[in-house]
Design a protein around this nucleic acid. Structure first.
Lengths: 266, 266
DNA sequence: CGTGAATTTGAGAGCCATCAATCTAAGTGG
DNA sequence: CCACTTAGATTGATGGCTCTCAAATTCACG
């Protein structure tokens, strides 16, 4: 079910400050009462190491996880042993909220880096659904954001070439990381290998490498040691035909991780 | 907002029998009370002609539509005028239920054939959300099915070649149509051109044509005049590496269209 | 029977996968 | 401190799949 190896669990009462702050409202869309209600539904936090599987395809689950720290993937294991990423999740994403309604997933959920997640039991989510219709709708909305992102990934695969796909993915990561202050708009950490990016973009690691070189030679961006540097964001976006509209960034409920010390951002 | 040209509207009280039957429970998952509640939320029905746009990208909407008859698409208009399908909907699908939470879509919704839809005002859906938590969760589940299908489409584009993609799409259509008794497992109507299939599979119409010929020569299936004939379903599924699991068919809420007269087909 | 849409077929080019080898960086243990 | 190991990045050569362009043919329909 859930791998125990290398995982840590922290009981609710011992939850550190940074978990408490995960649900802090950023865009003034979550009311104080909603935030408290959501926080009260957290069962505990848990850690996983990079590469570990968090939820397996087809195994019934009765909890959902909110990503607090690190990066997570959702991926499908293909016939021939290869896998394909269908989503990448950042801190603040309610990663498998949809498990609440699906009960069993059609894909795997894994840790891309070392991660910390907050765990919600479905019984608690039911309580929310009974108590707060508005918040329920917001949570519903969150699962629909995933679908919107899926649609964009479909278009990326269907209509863009290799160069555009990789550029598009980097633009998406930059925009999403920017929204949680994990990018300054020009540089951000991306703990993915070139092979990982290939699994996102439907390309081989070899070709991802060639494409990255091309992007570098075009003076658009650079990737070294899991660090992305964007030299020409407008140029990159133009190459990728990137339109951030689909991210619904202006309507997102901010549920992001902040520093353990509780230092206010900005 | 919604094109009026060629559209027909029928008030709730005048709703014909076939609309009443749309929500008929098939897999005994919808209780009688739930079915009645859902039916009571229908504002009216409306018709569109093949090719018409039902919901435009970015335009605020306050209604959601359930497809009663015909086929609908959800597609994104690409930069260069081409478009890409991200979903195909069959009778019984709650096509843009997600508009309830999103309020404005990131894609277009259109009619693939002449269609009839049942219209739900969002105010009525709010009423449901207040009254019936279980039904609300079922509706939530429906939107998650769309996301599951999106994920499968991502994998199809990322990991299959042209032959496999087309075979996979035909398998999906067959399985879904079978579930609503619109396929006998070997033959079904599919009102799509080869160019449409290309927009689903990320291929040119020319190549779709070659692939269909190959499938025909392999003795797997045949497509003529918007009619698909499957000669070797196991072979087709094997070619496509098709696993119907992702459709969650066993857990679907059946909301299917039946013939106006109530006459069983076949 | 004419018209336009859809299908079908051919030729050539380009993008990307595959296979293979080398190189780099980061551990790990002696 | 260095040899060894391993994962990841890099580069080259080759081939195949699919696109593009173009033209012919069939089909649906008025």
């Amino acid at each position: 079910m859930r791998r125990a190896a290398g995982c840590g669990t922290i009981a609710n009462q011992a939850m550190p400050m940074f978990t408490h702050n995960v649900l802090r409202n950023r865009s003034a869309e979550l009311s104080e009462a909603e935030r408290l209600l959501l926080e009260s539904a957290i069962s505990h936090t848990q850690t996983f190491r990079a590469g570990e599987t968090v939820v397996r395809q087809g195994v019934p689950v009765d909890i959902s996880t909110l990503l607090v720290q690190g990066l997570m993937t959702r991926h499908v294991d293909a016939h021939d042993g290869r896998r394909h990423l269908v989503a990448v999740h950042l801190p603040g994403d309610f990663v498998d909220l949809h498990a609440y309604a699906l009960k069993q997933l059609d894909h795997e959920v894994g840790a891309l880096s070392d991660i910390t997640v907050a765990v919600f039991r479905h019984a608690e989510l039911e309580r929310i659904q009974l108590q707060d219709m508005q918040l329920t709708r917001r949570l519903w909305f969150l699962t629909l954001l995933d679908a919107a992102m899926h649609r964009q990934w479909i278009c990326r695969l269907a209509s863009l070439n290799a160069l555009q796909r990789v550029a598009h993915f980097l633009c998406e990561m930059n925009a999403r990381l920017l929204a949680i202050d994990a990018s300054d708009g020009h540089s951000f950490a991306l703990p993915m290998t070139q092979a990982d990016i290939g699994e996102v973009c439907g390309l081989t690691n070899v070709h991802v490498n060639r494409v990255l070189r091309q992007l570098r030679e075009m003076g658009l961006c650079q990737m070294r040691a899991a660090q992305v540097q964007i030299h020409d964001l407008p140029g990159l976006a133009a190459t990728a035909l990137f339109d951030p509209e689909y991210l619904y960034l202006n309507r997102r409920i901010a549920m992001r991780a902040t520093a353990p010390s509780g230092v206010p951002h900005d």
